[in-house]
C-alpha cells in the first residue's frame, strides 16, 4: 500500500498534509478575527441585558420606560398580577388602607419561611419536642433568632389582622359589593388566631401546656357535644368521646394532642388559610379594587339607588 502511494498516484499524501495545514491556518485565522468580533458583540449585548434570549424568555415584554411596559411589568408577572396595572391615585395613600392587609400577608410569608426552617429541627413527640427547642435556642446557628422571629411575627400578624379589620370597618369597605369578601376575611381572622393557638403548644413547655389545657377545657362545656356541657350527658357524652377528645386525640393534653397541634399548625390550617387568601385577593380585584378613597356621598344621594363611581 505504501508502495502504491509513493508511485505517482500519491498526490494524495502530500495533498492531505497541505490541506490539513491550510485548514488549521484558516481555523487559527478565524479564531483571531471572529472571536474578538464575537466577544465585542457579546459585550455589546450584555450592555443591554433586556435583549438577551434568557431575559426575553423570562420577561415577556420590553423594559423601556413607557406606560405600556410599566403596565405589562405588572400584568405579565404571575406574582404582581394580583395588582391591576393602574389604580386610583389616592388609593396608594398610606393613610387610607394603613397597608395592613398587605403587611398581614407579608407576615404570613415570613412565618411560612421561618416555620419551614424550624420544622427541620423539630420533632412533634413528647420525648423530643422540648429538647429540640432547647437545641434550637443553644446550638443551632441563628436558632434563637429564628425562633424569636417566628414567635414575634405571629403576634404581629394577629395585631395586623385586627387593625386591618378595623380599617375595613371604619371605611365601610364591607358594603356592597364587598360583603362576601368581608366574610372570607372573618374566616381568615379565625384561622389566623387558630394558627397562633396551635403553635403555642408546640414547645411543650409549661406556658403552652397550661394555655392549651385552659383553652380546650372550654370544649368540655360545648352544649350537646361536650361531656360537661348543657345536654351533653343526655347525648351520651363522656370524656372519651366528646369534642375535646376529638381535638386532643385523648382525654388529656398529651402526645396525641402534640401531634394533632403540629399537623393543624404546619399543614392543615396553612393550606386552608392560603386558599382563603387566594380567594380574598381575587375578590378584592373582582369587587372593583380597593374601595376608596371614594368620593363622599351626600345624604340625598343615599336615598336614591346606588351611584356607581
Amino acid at each position: 500500500m505504501a508502495e502504491d502511494n509513493s508511485n505517482g498516484k500519491n498526490g494524495n499524501r502530500v495533498g492531505l498534509l497541505q490541506r490539513v495545514k491550510a485548514g488549521v491556518q484558516e481555523d487559527v485565522q478565524s479564531l483571531k478575527t471572529d472571536m474578538p468580533a464575537k466577544a465585542k458583540e457579546q459585550v455589546e449585548g450584555l450592555k443591554d441585558p433586556t435583549k438577551t434570549q434568557v431575559f426575553t424568555s423570562i420577561f415577556r415584554h420590553k423594559h423601556d420606560d413607557t406606560p405600556r411596559n410599566r403596565a405589562l411589568g405588572v400584568l405579565s408577572n404571575v406574582f404582581l398580577h394580583l395588582h391591576p396595572a393602574k389604580i386610583n391615585r389616592d388609593a396608594v395613600r398610606y393613610s387610607y388602607t394603613w397597608g395592613m392587609g398587605g403587611i398581614t400577608f407579608y407576615l404570613f410569608i415570613v412565618l411560612t419561611f421561618t416555620g419551614v426552617l424550624l420544622m427541620f429541627y423539630y420533632h412533634p413527640t413528647k420525648v423530643q419536642a422540648f429538647r429540640d427547642v432547647l437545641y434550637l435556642e443553644h446550638d443551632v446557628p441563628f436558632g434563637k433568632l429564628l425562633r424569636n422571629m417566628h414567635r414575634w411575627a405571629a403576634h404581629l400578624m394577629v395585631i395586623a389582622v385586627w387593625l386591618h379589620m378595623f380599617r375595613v370597618f371604619l371605611t365601610g369597605s364591607y358594603k356592597k359589593p364587598r360583603e362576601f369578601n368581608w366574610n372570607i376575611g372573618v374566616l381568615l381572622l379565625v384561622f389566623t388566631l387558630l394558627l397562633s393557638f396551635t403553635g403555642y403548644l408546640l414547645p411543650d413547655d409549661q406556658l403552652g401546656f397550661w394555655a392549651v389545657t385552659v383553652g380546650t377545657n372550654m370544649a368540655r362545656a360545648t352544649p350537646m357535644l361536650g361531656h360537661e356541657g348543657p345536654f351533653g350527658k343526655m347525648m351520651g357524652m363522656t370524656p372519651y368521646n366528646d369534642v375535646r377528645f376529638g381535638l386532643l386525640g385523648g382525654s388529656i393534653v398529651d402526645a396525641n394532642a402534640l401531634l394533632r397541634s403540629y399537623i393543624w399548625h404546619c399543614i392543615g390550617i396553612p393550606i386552608v388559610a392560603s386558599v382563603l387568601m387566594i380567594v380574598h385577593f381575587w375578590r378584592v380585584r373582582k369587587d372593583g379594587g380597593i374601595s376608596g378613597p371614594a368620593q363622599v356621598m351626600l345624604t340625598a344621594e343615599g336615598d336614591k339607588p346606588r351611584r356607581q363611581v
Binding site: 365601610g172 358594603k175 343615599g302
Partner: peptide, 18 residues
C-alpha cells in the same frame, strides 16, 4: 361579624372615613 354587611343597610360612608 359575618352578618354585619348584610344587616347594615346604610349606603353612606362606603369607601371613605366618616
Amino acid at each position: 361579624l359575618m352578618i354585619i354587611p348584610y344587616i347594615d343597610t346604610n349606603p353612606l360612608g362606603s369607601g371613605y372615613y366618616t
